[in-house]
Computed example of a mutant assay.
Amino acid sequence: MKNVKNNELHDRRVTATDAKAAQLAAFRAVHSAVDPAREAKRAERVAIAEARDARQAERKQAKIDEKIRLEAEAVEREAALEAEANAENLARELADKNRIARVLDDEAARKAERDKRYANRKARQA
C-alpha cells in the first residue's frame, strides 16, 4: 500500500535539514573524541610538512649561495681579464719605450761615429 501521507514541501525541507543537522552532530561527536592514532597521524603529517619546508628553505639557500658564488667567479674572471689587459698594455708600452730608447741610442752612436770620422778626416787634413 502507498504512503498516503501528504508531505508538503516545507515539511520535507524541515525533515532534510533536521537529518543533516543530526548527521553533522554525529560526525562531530565521533571526531571530537581524542583518538591517539589520529593524533599520531596528525603529528606525523606536521613533522613531514616541517621537514619539507626545511628542505625547501635549504634548496632555496643553496640556489642563493650558488648564484652568489657564480657572481663572485664572474667578478674574479673580469678582474683577471682586466689585470691581464693592463699587464699587456704595460708590456706594450715598455716595449715601445725600449724600442724608442734603442733608436735614440743607435742614432747617438751613429752621430758619435760620424763625428769621429769627421774629426779623423779633419786631423788628416791638418
Rank of each mutant, 00 (worst) to 15 (best):
E8P: 05
A62N: 01
D106H: 14
A72T: 15
K116C: 04
H31V: 08
R117K: 14
A87V: 05
H31N: 09
R117V: 07
R69F: 08
R69Q: 13
A74E: 08
Y118P: 01
E88G: 13
V75T: 10
Q56G: 04
M1C: 09
D65Q: 07
A40C: 03
D11F: 00
N86M: 14
Y118D: 15
E8H: 07
L104M: 12
A25S: 12
R13E: 03
E58Y: 05
Q56N: 11
K67W: 05
K20G: 02
R42C: 07
S32Y: 05
H31T: 11
E93P: 05
E82L: 14
A62S: 00
A21D: 10
K5Y: 12
A83R: 14
R102L: 13
R45H: 10
S32W: 06
Y118W: 10
E113V: 05
H10N: 12
T17P: 02
A126H: 13
R99P: 00
A49K: 13
N7K: 10
V14Y: 04
R114F: 12
A57C: 05
A83I: 01
A62Q: 03
A54M: 03
V34N: 04
D11W: 02
L90H: 12
A29S: 07
K63I: 07
E39L: 01
P36G: 03
Q23W: 02
I100M: 09
A119D: 06
R59H: 07
A33Y: 03
I68N: 12
K41S: 08
E58T: 04
A49N: 15
A123I: 07
R124S: 01
E71L: 11
A62G: 04
A87K: 09
L24Q: 02
I100S: 10
